[in-house]
Amino acid sequence: MAELAALAVLLGLARLAGAAAARLGQPAVLGEILCGVALAPAARLLPAPVGATLTALAQLGLVLFLFAAGAHLAPSLTAARLKATVVPALGATLVPLGLGALLAVWLARRHAPGGTGPFVVFVAAAMTVTALPVLARILADRGLLAADAGRRALGAAAVTDVTAWLLLIGAAFSRHGWFATSSLPVVLGLAALPVVARGRFGRRIGRLAPGSATAVLVALACAAAAVTAAAGLHPAIGAFFAGAVLGRAVPILDPAALVTPAGSLLAPLYFVLAGRAVDLGQLDAALAAEIAAVVAVAVLGKGGGAYLGARLGGVAPHPAGVFAVLMNTRGVTELVFAGIGLGLGVIDRALYTAMVVMALVTTAMTGPLLTRLSPQREGV
């Protein structure tokens, strides 16, 4: 009973906070994270069994959210779309990657519990992230999905996010050892998934009724998550990979649309608990300076790199500015990244706090900056 009461209260408060953020023109996740930060002192007083149950439900919400995000990313991974955005995407990937690596070398002396190598790879990857699901929602709300700006941003976001996830997997493997005996089955299993999905098994899934298909997709998402978790990696990695594979293998089912409702129910719980992990009690002058540096490098690296790449790709100044603003959208993907890094022991709680602040700031910037640029829509 206590678990159900706590779940009802947290989900209710998360929805209220998300609705309040939406009324202010911000993504709902912004309110959900701030709700978690505000509730942190009370949430830490929950009995251990209640906390464990809520964490398990939040983990399920994260797995389904990442599976849907991977499936949502799959349509952007076409040769035509990626070719058209290769130069802007390189700018939006390589510049933040390089600046993030330099920042990580400076931060490693205080915040790298798992060693400098995995830490540098993780921070560099975190600087390249663009939240594709949030970006797609912003473009849809502003009628830009079919515009050049929308197609350019989605294609480039696909490149940067695939790069970031591959680097994250590399950081996870290097943290736990490339030659760990548990890693080989994971590599073989993930490599076999595209083959299986495009074979008879995938065709059978494509013929299922929506209810049965949803149950199968949820089971596959959880199975992929369990496989990576068993190898010492984060379960979200397997869920994301499975979503990306199945999104391309059985597009007729639209896996993202089928799984999103289930993920949307529990995902706010994950973001509230993510806010609970933010520890402002450690805030001092040194950490405040590091948070400012993380935010500055994130904005300048991603925005500046995207603008430079777009200009080198022949995009006019104003559309290049719109592209830079869109690519700087970190959203929930950055929060998931930070949570994975903390769970893997690659970063400590202080840097996790800095990453959450950066995600909130960059997400909050997107709407006002796009509104400011909107009067000059010509050429977008």
Rank of each mutant, 00 (worst) to 15 (best):
R200S: 15
R200C: 01
R200F: 05
F201G: 03
F201M: 12
F201L: 14
G202D: 05
G202E: 04
G202Y: 08
R204I: 03
I205A: 09
R207Q: 15
L208R: 10
L208Q: 09
L208E: 06
L208H: 07
L208P: 04
A209F: 03
A209K: 13
P210V: 05
G211Q: 12
S212I: 09
S212M: 11
S212G: 12
A213D: 08
A215G: 10
A215E: 05
A215L: 14
V216G: 04
L217R: 00
V218Y: 01
V218N: 05
V218A: 11
V218G: 01
L220C: 08
L220F: 02
L220A: 06
L220Q: 00
A221P: 00
A221R: 01
C222E: 12
A223Y: 05
A224T: 07
A224G: 12
A224D: 10
A225Q: 05
A225R: 02
A225K: 02
A225T: 06
A226Q: 12
A226Y: 10
V227P: 00
V227H: 03
A230E: 09
A230M: 10
A231R: 08
G232N: 11
G232R: 11
L233G: 01
L233S: 03
L233I: 01
H234L: 06
H234A: 13
H234K: 04
P235C: 08
P235G: 09
A236E: 01
A236G: 11
I237C: 04
I237H: 05
G238F: 09
G238Y: 06
G238C: 08
G238L: 10
G238N: 03
A239E: 06
A239N: 07
A239S: 13
F241S: 05
A242K: 03
G243N: 07
G243S: 06
A244G: 03
A244K: 04
L246Q: 01
G247Q: 04
G247H: 07
A249N: 02
V250N: 02
V250A: 12
P251V: 02
P251I: 07
P251T: 03
P251L: 04
I252K: 08
I252Q: 14
I252A: 14
D254C: 00
D254F: 01
D254R: 09
P255K: 12
P255W: 06
A256G: 05
A256M: 02
A257P: 02
A257L: 11
L258K: 15
L258N: 04
L258D: 08
L258S: 08
V259G: 00
V259K: 01
T260H: 10
P261E: 03
A262Y: 15
A262S: 12
S264D: 15
L265C: 11
L265F: 14
L265K: 01
L265G: 01
A267W: 02
A267T: 13
A267M: 14
P268Q: 09
P268H: 06
Y270N: 06
F271Y: 11
V272E: 02
V272I: 10
L273K: 05
A274C: 10
A274R: 02
A274P: 13
G275L: 10
G275Q: 03
R276G: 13
R276S: 14
R276D: 13
D279L: 11
L280P: 09
